[in-house]
């Protein structure tokens, strides 16, 4: 099974895990699958927060059903509180 690489930039409370998380998932994975991978990678810590967060590329938030077919740079955006 082929895989793709994800460079995941971390924000807010995810910064305690570093600036970037590098992941590999099967080609054709959905964003929801990537969230499950993130949760496992950080050993289940903040699992609820992972699923309450969204993943985005540099243009827009990607829905959980979005399918990834090539290497990509993403960001994980936890719940927001600006101002």
């Amino acid at each position: 099974m082929s895989e793709l690489s994800i460079s995941l930039k971390l924000f807010g409370s995810f910064r305690k895990f570093g600036q970037v998380l590098n992941l590999r998932v099967p080609t054709g994975s959905t964003i929801l699958t990537v969230k499950e991978k993130i949760s496992k990678t950080i050993d289940g810590q903040e699992s609820e927060l992972v699923f309450d967060s969204v993943l985005a590329d540099n243009d827009a938030i990607l829905p959980d059903t979005h399918i990834l077919n090539e290497d990509i740079k993403l960001s994980i955006l936890p719940p927001v509180c600006g101002g």
Binding site: F11, G12, S13, D52, S53, V54, A56, I61, S75, L77, P78, P79, V80, C81, G82, G83
Partner: peptide, 21 residues
Amino acid sequence: PVWKQEHYIDRKSEWLPGHSL
């Protein structure tokens, strides 16, 4: 997509909860 980390007088810090996107 903005997040706040509060810093307290006892030198502890905490990211504030927010609204899910």
